[in-house]
Design a protein around this nucleic acid. Structure first.
Lengths: 340, 340
DNA sequence: AATGCATGTGAGATCGATCTCACATGGTTT
DNA sequence: AAACCATGTGAGATCGATCTCACATGCATT
């Protein structure tokens, strides 16, 4: 039958000392006699005592768990980050709670509230929205360690880890322009999302710098799923004068575009050139392989977790904003456009 | 400054009642006067009261969190499952803690212990090892709801959700035999792992049934990562008389094999035929598309979560073993082998 | 002899929510 | 009038770990 796990009281009783003394012996603080300490440890061993982390947390006001609110764990980008955070957390004897906001502000807020009522102090969040971030503001006010990841939010002063989205997008577009393209399409998701906005802005500034006037007909918007991206790509390439090149803002949309092109009988890079943001393992399996703007994924989660644990272990440095560079990985999905 | 969140005591004081009455009003049990109840709710509202879930859990002995111990969240198979569980958990106002065992028994054990000391009751585990599962036995003895996923373990009587690995493997091999192949390679991971063992057994029984004697030189073992699978594939195909077809036991190994073949200049399906276990989005992006044994991934996590919540909500039905069928998706990576 | 101090130990309070129990009311039944 | 009950409320215990405080010792100072 289910015998309850041993409590400190049990250990104390077994060792014939008070709870206070048992606690002192096990946590080694204050004065404890050698012999007493031995007895207590023996008793703890014998009874298989493991402290109740819940009671400890209630007492000292925080639970050694990291709350991690991401867009979606199924996105390999976030899965990788979650994995890296978990590995580091384990070193600090923290656990990891993962929640998906599914890009809904409301869900992000309620998830956060629910975690806060668990006395969790320490969050890594990929914020959905750029506005109405009262929940994040409150965290800051209450001095709860918070690291924003992948996206920053105006008005929130805290640690963050993002990549140079604008620069990455600019590199991609400059490359396409250099290869002779002028009608360059953009497949992006909701501009509510920070990364999408920044990548759009890089796209526009590179076009302008290249003497090309941005044209709304070259831009298609969809949710960030493969299915929605297929539709958006088809819409974009069903125009009378479709783009000769396409830039997609994340890997799911890149996959959608690939499928759409296949369905439409459009061949890469012969009929159209393609550059995607975010490298993904599929990109090197296709023929031709896909040229992408790569983010240092392995460093993002690690950096975020490091920042968080700095704060959690009491170092109160001013907020750090880490921004990683991106890299254009030229593979085979872009062809030179004959002039004219 | 960090003003502490309001406690029940604060609410009670604000409403001029005792803690007990406030609790009764907020949780609506026992007798409470209408007017009193109104006052309490008003006070709770005004102070932004949210129960401390930690204290609640300490009191009633369980925390509304599901512990989920998987091999690795980065494996899309597990990522999908984790996502599905989280969605269902949210409905029940549970959170989800994810831990990776990284296929180490020791890590699985310590993770579980750490979660148990959080008074978590309710686990979904993909057990690493077939033996020494004392930690799981203890859960059962203590009546802690437990659902095994992807793998079952002998001697542990509890709910489980797995797929028909042996049958799936058999289908794949039978298909290859029907296409005229006789030297059929197997790329598998550690036989400590349940799925690997079952798939091996399906491979062997199909061969035998087809009049082919299993040959150890046709089998290569590696860890389940793309990198290790590349090496293992190269080893397998560097023999004097290499296989004419290959069966890989999971999607990461299928990817490794693809990369190895490319590096070795081996073309699919001309030089070698390939069937993988577990469908993955990349499989339809390659040329040719990869023939796979597909598992109903979307149902696995859901079924597991459902079983778990049945137990958590007090229904004490006998342990259910759910086993899903697999499906051979014939695409283009297998060619008919000329007789002789 | 009186004081100081280092060393050990236990009783009880605390964290926040909840539950049991006892104690009030006022009204209804015998 | 006595007994009973439905209704409403508060005091205090409980969950388990930890911390403060008070109280012992015994030894070393003045």
């Amino acid at each position: 039958m289910a015998q309850k796990p041993a409590t400190l009281k049990d250990v104390a009783a077994y060792a014939n000392v008070s709870r206070a003394t048992a606690a002192r012996a096990l946590n080694s603080y204050g004065y404890v006699g050698d012999e007493t300490a031995r007895k207590v440890h023996e008793a703890a061993e014998k009874l298989g005592y493991r402290g109740n982390r819940l009671a400890q947390a209630l007492r000292n006001g925080q639970l050694p768990i990291i709350g991690c609110i991401l867009g979606d764990i199924q996105n390999p980008f976030f899965a990788r980050i979650a994995h890296d955070i978990e590995v580091l957390a384990r070193k600090y004897r923290y656990n990891l709670i993962i929640g998906s906001s599914e890009e809904e502000l409301e869900q992000e807020v309620s998830l956060l509230a629910s975690l806060q009522s668990l006395s969790i102090r320490g969050f890594i969040v990929a914020p959905t929205s750029d506005e109405n971030n009262f929940h994040l503001e409150r965290l800051i006010e209450e001095n709860v360690p918070l690291v924003l990841i992948d996206r920053v939010v105006k008005g929130i002063e805290c640690d963050s880890v993002v990549v140079d989205n604008e620069g990455g997008a600019r590199k991609a577009i400059e490359y396409l322009i250099a290869m002779g393209h002028r009608r360059i399409g953009l497949l992006q998701d909701d501009t509510r999302i920070f990364t999408s906005r920044e990548r759009l802005s890089g796209y526009q500034s590179a076009l302008t710098a290249g003497g090309i006037t941005p044209d709304d007909r070259m831009i298609s918007v969809s949710q960030s799923t493969v299915e929605h991206a297929i539709d958006a790509t088809i819409r974009l390439f069903s125009q009378k004068t479709p783009p000769t090149a396409l830039f997609t803002v994340d890997s799911l949309m890149t996959q959608g575009a690939l499928l759409a092109f296949r369905a439409m009988g459009i061949s890469i890079p012969h009929d159209v050139s393609l550059v995607g943001f975010d490298d993904f393992n599929l990109a090197t399996f296709t023929d031709p392989q896909i040229t992408v703007v790569a983010q240092p994924v392995s460093e993002i989660g690690l950096a975020a977790a490091r920042l968080l644990f700095e704060k959690l272990t009491g170092q109160s440095s001013p907020p750090q904003q880490i921004r990683f560079e991106t890299k254009l990985l030229i593979r085979g999905s872009v062809s030179r456009r004959p002039e004219g």
